[in-house]
């Protein structure tokens, strides 16, 4: 029993530290994605596919070798993935994004949609680059 108790001590320390890290992670997340975005950037295969202003409604078809792979929709200041040809359809389920730093990722098609602020207030960008 005694050895069990000392074992538990380190486990509790581990989970306490994990909890503290978690709180900081969520705080960082909320501070970074506070402001509303202005520009929606779509990257495909690490190259910028296009940048679109979010105050206008768009429907962007991303094609690969003439075949439609993803369809992105910008509507009412929100961006979402309308269609994807990948098997898991995770990006469709990710829902709508609108704030700076929020992303929709389609891993199989290597597409990343990122919301950006206007250049002066891009807080996450200046921190990570």
């Amino acid at each position: 029993m005694k050895s069990n108790k000392t074992n538990m001590k380190y486990d509790i320390i581990f989970f306490a530290v994990a909890l503290i890290i978690l709180v900081f992670l969520f705080l960082a997340y909320f501070f970074m994605t506070r402001s509303n975005g202005y520009i929606c950037e779509i990257k495909k295969d690490n190259k910028i596919y296009g940048e679109y202003k979010m105050d206008k409604d768009h429907e962007i078809d991303i094609k690969e070798n003439g075949k439609l792979v993803n369809a992105v929709v910008i509507k009412d200041h929100e961006v979402y993935m309308k269609e994807a040809d990948c098997p898991d359809k995770l990006c469709e389920k990710m829902g709508k994004i609108s704030r700076v730093g929020e992303t929709i990722v389609c891993l199989p098609n290597k597409i990343v949609i990122t919301i950006k602020g206007d250049k002066g207030s891009d807080s996450l960008d200046s921190m990570t680059k």
Binding site: A28, Y29, M32, K43, E102, T103, V105, V112, T114
Partner: peptide, 11 residues
């Protein structure tokens, strides 16, 4: 992906 915004999923 050369994109560090993905870390917003980390929490």
């Amino acid at each position: 992906m050369e994109n560090y915004y993905i870390f917003t999923y980390f929490p």
